[in-house]
Amino acid sequence: MTRYVIIGAGAVGGTIGGALARTGQDVLLVARGRHAEVMREDGLTLRTPDGAFTVHPPVITDPAEADLTVDDVLVLTVKTHQAVDVLPVWADLPVWDAGTVVGTAGERLPIITALNGVVSEDLASRWFRTVLGCCVWLPAIHLEPGEVIVRSAPVLGMLHIGPVPLGPAPAALTALQQPWTDSGIRVALPADVMPWKYRKLISNLGNGLQAVLGDDHPALAELTARAEVEAREVLAAAGIELVDEDEHTAARADSLTPRPVPGEPERLGGSSWQSLARGTGSIETDYLNGEIVRIAHRLGREAPVDETVARMCRRAATIGAAPGELAGQLLDALGVGS
């Protein structure tokens, strides 16, 4: 039986791992700190619009404890800025088959890159031969140890997964589509996943604005629109393909049904907001807004809105600012009245 090793069991990884464990799939969660301790002691609780459930899959904190075999599939769900530290550690772990080491994880195992942004596939390819890019639509929040809040049900999340570079889907990928979908994690297998990931990148540009402004600031929608317009111009100039807008809208509408979670506010922040709310000291914005800036600079262009957002997010994370605390500074930097 295939085992799914969830590397980073936070909001996204916890939702995927929890959903799979609930339906009897073999899951190993990899986490750290108090979150790992609580999951080991009391299990992982997923709270959804349809109610809560708790699962008790095994949890490790040290990759060396994984005891990888040829039946494993790795699912990378850390933040993008953490991936470069995580990937080589996992790639060099031994893989066992019938009591014999037959190679390393980088040589023998597929890795699914379920991260925001568009660079994790290239990063993973430095260490892994089989990289499965993944576009993640999954409205989840992880703030408390041992708990993930998922704001969609009965489908908890929508994943588009495909090999990078382009090629036939490996057997491990086609084999997971039905059991994952049955668990509440709907999986689609497009011929090319990267146009989906670039379109998702545009949708993620508001994450940093939400984090710095707060999730209900009156300027949030206007500034998000400015960042997105800027990004579309840069991506078009670079000749980067986006999935057809109608196809993108239809896929989301067919899959996700966001609803309030009992006992929680109707509005809760996204991944970058959660980083500031938890005081992690880091944030992934350099691989979201910062990716637009990188592409712009490569073309000899500027992307001032996205550059400003990325810079302010770095500052907020570095000084430990709470969501909304630096709103005035961001508005001043963007020339918007508070």
Score class of each variant (00 low, 15 high):
residue 3 R to H: 01
residue 3 R to E: 02
residue 27 V to I: 10
residue 28 L to M: 11
residue 33 G to R: 13
residue 33 G to W: 09
residue 43 G to R: 07
residue 43 G to Y: 05
residue 44 L to D: 11
residue 53 F to N: 04
residue 55 V to W: 04
residue 62 D to M: 13
residue 73 V to E: 01
residue 73 V to L: 01
residue 78 V to C: 05
residue 79 K to Y: 00
residue 81 H to D: 15
residue 85 D to H: 14
residue 88 P to W: 02
residue 88 P to N: 07
residue 88 P to L: 04
residue 95 V to T: 08
residue 97 D to H: 13
residue 98 A to S: 12
residue 112 I to Y: 00
residue 120 S to G: 00
residue 121 E to A: 03
residue 124 A to L: 03
residue 125 S to F: 11
residue 129 R to A: 12
residue 138 L to M: 13
residue 141 I to T: 15
residue 145 P to G: 03
residue 151 R to Y: 12
residue 162 G to K: 07
residue 164 V to N: 12
residue 170 P to L: 00
residue 173 L to I: 06
residue 176 L to F: 10
residue 179 P to S: 01
residue 182 D to I: 05
residue 184 G to E: 04
residue 184 G to Y: 04
residue 184 G to M: 07
residue 185 I to M: 06
residue 186 R to M: 12
residue 190 P to K: 05
residue 192 D to Q: 11
residue 193 V to R: 01
residue 198 Y to T: 12
residue 198 Y to R: 06
residue 198 Y to K: 08
residue 199 R to C: 06
residue 202 I to K: 09
residue 204 N to K: 04
residue 215 D to E: 15
residue 219 A to R: 15
residue 220 L to I: 07
residue 224 T to C: 07
residue 233 E to V: 14
residue 237 A to H: 12
residue 238 A to I: 03
residue 245 E to S: 13
residue 247 E to T: 15
residue 248 H to S: 12
residue 251 A to F: 08
residue 251 A to V: 05
residue 260 P to I: 05
residue 264 E to S: 00
residue 273 W to F: 13
residue 273 W to Q: 05
residue 274 Q to N: 08
residue 275 S to F: 02
residue 279 G to I: 07
residue 281 G to D: 00
residue 282 S to F: 14
residue 289 N to K: 04
residue 290 G to T: 10
residue 294 R to Q: 02
residue 303 A to Y: 07
residue 306 D to H: 15
residue 308 T to F: 04
residue 311 R to P: 02
residue 317 A to K: 06
residue 320 G to V: 05
residue 322 A to E: 13
residue 323 P to W: 09
residue 323 P to R: 09
residue 326 L to G: 00
residue 326 L to E: 01
residue 327 A to M: 10
residue 335 G to S: 09
